[in-house]
C-alpha cells in the first residue's frame, strides 16, 4: 500500500432546504480508487466541478468519506483519533494565497503549524529556518505577507507546510491566482522539493504545462478517475482529453496537428526541444 490509497471513495454534498429536508444530493466523488507511492510527483487534472478539490480535501481530512475508505500513510481517515496525525502527514496548500496566511510576519506564519502540534520553541526556529531556505524565502522572513507577490506568498504557504515535516504535500490549484512568473516560481519550488527532499507531491491543477514533469497523471471527470498514466501517455490522447474539456500543452497540440497533416511525429510530445528534434529527423 502506498502513502495515499483510496478504496471505493465516495463523497456526496447534501444540500438541505430551510426545514432540513434533503433537496439535492451532489455526488462529488464516485467510487474513486487511487494508490500513490511515497516520493512520487502526482498531478490530478480536471475541469471545474470534476471533484479534484474534493479528493484533495479527503487527503487532509477536511472532508471525510460518505462511503469507502481513504488511507493516508496506512491510517484510516475516518478514525478520529488519527485526525491530527494525518493532517501532519499530509500538508495542504490552498488556492488563494491571502486566505491561508495567518500571521502578520512571514517567519511567524511558517511557525504556526509547528506551534499547533506542540513542537518545542528551539526546534520551531530550526524548522522555520530550514523551511524558508527550502523555498528560497530567507530574505523575506521579517516581511509582512501583504507586501509579497502572489508567487512569494504561495512559497511562504508551502514553507508553512514543510515546517510540519509532512510526507505528502497536497496543493489544491496553488497557481490559479498567480501571474506566469509566480506560477513558474511555485512549480519550480514544488519540483525541487520532490526531487531533493523526496516529499510526495500531489498537484491539482488545470494548467497542462505544469505537469509535464509529473511521474503520474490522473484525469478526473464527474467525480470519477477517467484516465491515468504518465504525462506522455495522457497527452497522446488529445481527443479524449478534449472530451473532458481539457487542453494539452501548446507544443503537444502543435505536434498532434502536424501528425494529423501526415508528418511522421509520435503522439505525446512534451517539450519544445523534443519536437525540434523530431522535426529535424524528418528531413
Amino acid at each position: 500500500m502506498g502513502i495515499i490509497k483510496a478504496v471505493k471513495l465516495c463523497h456526496e454534498y447534501i444540500h438541505r432546504d430551510e426545514e432540513g429536508n434533503v433537496d439535492n444530493i451532489e455526488t462529488a466523488l464516485d467510487n474513486v480508487d487511487l494508490d500513490i507511492s511515497q516520493g512520487d510527483f502526482i498531478a490530478i487534472l480536471g475541469h471545474n466541478g470534476s471533484g479534484k478539490s474534493t479528493l484533495a480535501k479527503h487527503m487532509n481530512v477536511i472532508l471525510s468519506p460518505s462511503e469507502g475508505t481513504m488511507y493516508v500513510d496506512g491510517k484510516d481517515t475516518s478514525d478520529e483519533d488519527e485526525l491530527w496525525n494525518i493532517r501532519q502527514t499530509a500538508g495542504m496548500v490552498f488556492q488563494n494565497p491571502d486566505n491561508q496566511i495567518i500571521a502578520g510576519i512571514v517567519e511567524e506564519d511558517v511557525g504556526f503549524g509547528p506551534e499547533n502540534i506542540g513542537v518545542p520553541t528551539k526546534e520551531i526556529w530550526a524548522r522555520v529556518e530550514n523551511a524558508l531556505s527550502k523555498v528560497h524565502m530567507e530574505k523575506y522572513r521579517h516581511h509582512s505577507p501583504n507586501k509579497l507577490s502572489g508567487g512569494q506568498k504561495q512559497r511562504v504557504a508551502i514553507a508553512g507546510v514543510i515546517a510540519m515535516k509532512p510526507k505528502v504535500i497536497v496543493l489544491d490549484e496553488p497557481t490559479a491566482m498567480l501571474d506566469p512568473i509566480g506560477r513558474r516560481e511555485v512549480i519550480e519550488t514544488i519540483e525541487e522539493l520532490n526531487k531533493k527532499e523526496h516529499v510526495t507531491v500531489i498537484l491539482i491543477t488545470h494548467y497542462m504545462e505544469e505537469i509535464v514533469n509529473a511521474d503520474k497523471v490522473f484525469v478526473m471527470d464527474h467525480g470519477k478517475i477517467v484516465m491515468q498514466g504518465t504525462p506522455r501517455e495522457i497527452f497522446s490522447k488529445v481527443d479524449e482529453l478534449k472530451s473532458y474539456h481539457l487542453d494539452v500543452p501548446q507544443i503537444t497540440l502543435l505536434a498532434h496537428k502536424l501528425r494529423e497533416k501526415g508528418l511522421n511525429i509520435p503522439e505525446g510530445v512534451l517539450t519544445k526541444e523534443e519536437l525540434l528534434e523530431r522535426l529535424c529527423q524528418l528531413s
Binding site: 487532509n60 477536511i62 491530527w84 493532517r87 501532519q88 500538508g91 495542504m92 490552498f94 488563494n96 486566505n99 491561508q100 495567518i102 517567519e107 511567524e108 511557525g111 504556526f112 503549524g113 509547528p114 506551534e115 499547533n116 502540534i117 506542540g118 513542537v119 518545542p120 520553541t121 520551531i124 526556529w125 522555520v128 508553512g160 507546510v161 510540519m164
Partner: peptide
C-alpha cells in the same frame, strides 16, 4: 477559507500549543 487553512495546519485551539 482561512478556517479551513488553519484546520489543515492542525490548529486545535489553545490547548497544547507551544510558542515560537
Amino acid at each position: 477559507d482561512l478556517a479551513m487553512a488553519m484546520e489543515a495546519r492542525c490548529y486545535n485551539g489553545g490547548e497544547g500549543r507551544t510558542r515560537m
